[in-house]
């Protein structure tokens, strides 16, 4: 068994492809350094991320694949999915080995799997756009905690920066412990080592919450509750539309 271990960056993954071709070494698995390394492995190859090498691989990919297939790869890289690195790695290698682009060859398991995964990741990004809720903090920053299935924040940044251009906001992935901060000009990645959110209710701490925040949450909740037409209630459909895992941060479902 040969394992490639890379630094969990996309560049790292591309470098791994480069090294594999360069050293004529085909790994059985590619894992990122955040993953558990099994005990008994014959050979572990540490991949040192190298931008020059990764650039070359990326350029090559762009020549062989359509732009949408390239972006499919980067989007899928954000997925939380078992064996993801290995599948992506194999996909890229196959692309280089075959004459024609493999992107529509759905009889290949990796191609099929990645195309299905892509849809899931995109859908999760849409759900973040739907169900993210901002709470106004006492320093006038709109704080939106959320815990999506996949690491989709990068996919929604442009939507939120366009829509909420005139307010400062943070979108925080509580599962992956990082967030995006928009300061009216640009966005940057931040890590909060003490997020001011109540564990159980998902609300900002009282001291951290803007004075008027509570009343708007309450208003929204009341508004929502008065919307349902009792003659038509359908709980199953409701849960299907609005998955439970998002309820924690929705004022209307608290």
């Amino acid at each position: 068994m040969i394992y490639f271990i890379y630094d969990a960056t996309f560049d790292g993954l591309l470098t791994a492809v480069f090294e594999s071709f360069d050293r004529k070494l085909i790994p059985d698995k590619v894992i990122s350094e955040n993953e558990q390394i099994p005990l008994f492995i014959e050979q572990i190859v540490d991949i040192a991320t190298d931008e020059v090498k990764s650039q070359r691989v990326w350029k090559g990919l762009q020549k062989k694949l359509s732009p949408s297939a390239c972006s499919m790869l980067t989007v899928n890289f954000l997925a939380d999915y078992p064996n993801l690195s290995t599948i992506l790695f194999r996909y890229i290698c196959k692309t280089f080995q075959s004459e024609r682009s493999i992107e529509t060859n759905f009889s290949d398991n990796d191609v099929l799997e990645l195309s299905q995964l892509y849809r899931k990741v995109r859908y999760e990004a849409t759900r973040v756009m739907q169900f993210l809720r901002f709470q106004k903090s006492s320093d006038d920053i709109f704080f939106g905690p959320i815990a999506p299935l996949h690491n989709v924040l990068p996919l929604v940044i442009s939507h939120f920066t366009d829509r909420f251009a005139d307010q400062k906001w943070v979108i925080y992935d509580t599962k992956r412990q990082y967030g995006i901060f928009y300061d009216l000009k640009s966005t940057q990645e931040i890590i909060l080592d003490n997020i001011q959110v109540e564990e159980t209710t998902g609300k900002l701490h009282k001291e951290a919450m803007a004075e008027d925040e509570k009343i708007f949450q309450q208003m929204w909740k009341e508004y929502f509750n008065s919307l349902a037409i009792k003659e038509r209630i359908n709980p199953k459909l409701h849960r299907q539309n609005l998955p439970r895992r998002f309820w924690k941060y929705l004022p209307e479902k608290r």
Partner: peptide, 27 residues
């Protein structure tokens, strides 16, 4: 498609799951 590509590039250049420079904000 276009915005996807932009994101793709963005991801590659700046977006790393583990970025080296973190802005740590403490309470």
């Amino acid at each position: 498609e276009l915005s996807e590509i932009l994101i793709g590039r963005f991801l590659r250049k700046k977006w790393k799951k583990q970025s080296v420079q973190k802005t740590i904000i403490r309470s």
